[in-house]
């Protein structure tokens, strides 16, 4: 399914896209955040069981046989942070081995940045300022994951069991499929969030969801006062998930445990094994400064800005 042949060069779009990128760079220049570039092709990749990487055969040029297109520049940028870079940002291609769709492209443009000394709430305020600089004029709203989930489902995502989620779903839908009932607890919570919560966000107002359940912490630290909460947030613009941020976990041992849990889940589901990136772990052990970081889908945000109907409409060219 290639749109390539059909698509003519749209000069107006190229100019709008260039201006959007220029505005992003102007914001970070003003904020004194340094632009960096890190390799897109690397010998290791993420262990996350829900994120697949494109493997690339490199046996002809390297001792290792397989490299991976990076799903985000996170590990590489954290290596720079650990070696004293200070606050940094990067705009570049990221790759995910996923079915393309209206709002998905296997290759897309990601803006990722890290603020040394910021916690998650300060970084959310930073994201909000960037949105203003990009002419998203509506004042954003912020909900905690727990409160917005309770509002729309009356279930508490921090403590609810898989069985209670299933019973609630059966009550709500006539025929819940076996595949949905077979989801694990966290996936059921994600299913309910995707089906009954995020669809209720006002498309006109940028919406932050913060304080995620600890079971979906990924690389975020847990709340000091409530270990059921992870210092992770997401941003929705025009109904689309546009950004994901963490108050970064600095504890290498805890990170190692989470990666091992990922690997176990991968093995259980018959997904390909992924090594834990040793260079990234070395950087974590050496010490990451106190910082928060966020990854933002540039194409999605541009699509929201231009009221585009699909992601490929705001990409200069696309293959999928």
């Amino acid at each position: 399914m290639s749109h390539e042949q059909k698509k003519k060069t749209n000069l107006a779009l190229l100019k709008k896209r260039a201006q959007f990128l220029a505005d992003i760079r102007a914001y970070f220049q003003k904020e004194d955040v340094l632009e960096v570039q890190t390799p897109v092709l690397a010998p290791d990749t993420v262990t996350d069981p829900h994120t697949e990487s494109f493997p690339v055969a490199v046996d002809a040029i390297s001792e290792s046989s397989l490299y991976f297109l990076q799903t985000s520049p996170e590990y590489a940028m954290k290596r720079l942070l650990a070696s004293g870079s200070g606050s940094i940002y990067q705009i570049g291609s990221a790759f995910r081995y996923e079915v393309a769709g209206r709002w998905h492209q296997p290759e897309f443009t990601m803006l990722e940045w890290y603020r040394v000394g910021f916690d998650d709430k300060q970084l959310m305020a930073d994201v909000a300022r960037l949105l203003k600089a990009l002419s998203f004029n509506a004042e954003p709203v912020t909900y905690s994951y727990q409160s917005v989930f309770l509002d729309h489902t009356s279930l508490d995502p921090l403590i609810v069991s898989a069985e209670t989620c299933q019973a609630w779903l059966r009550d709500k839908q006539a025929n819940v499929s076996d595949a949905v009932l077979a989801l694990d607890r966290d996936e059921l919570i994600q299913y309910l969030f995707a089906t009954y919560v995020e669809v209720e966000f006002d498309p006109e107002i940028p919406t932050f969801v913060c304080d995620f359940p600890a079971t979906q912490a990924a690389l975020a630290r847990l709340d000091n006062s409530n270990p059921k909460i992870a210092k992770r947030f997401e941003l929705y613009v025009d109904g689309l998930e546009c950004a994901n941020g963490f108050y970064e976990l600095l504890d290498a041992k805890e990170q190692q445990k989470r990666f091992e849990r990922d690997q176990a889940l991968r093995a259980k589901r018959g997904l390909p094994h992924r090594d834990i990136d040793p260079v990234f772990m070395d950087a974590l052990k050496k010490g990451l400064p106190e910082c928060s970081g966020v990854a933002l889908g540039v194409d999605r945000l541009l699509a929201a800005s231009l009221k585009a109907q699909r992601l490929s409409d705001v990409m200069s060219l696309s293959w999928f």
């Binding site: 829900h50 079915v99 769709g101 998905h104 994600q190 299913y191 979906q216 997401e234 998930e241 994901n244």
Partner: peptide, 9 residues
């Protein structure tokens, strides 16, 4: 529409 959370199912 495919809905793929950045981190999730």
């Amino acid at each position: 529409d495919n809905v793929k959370p950045g981190k999730g199912q």
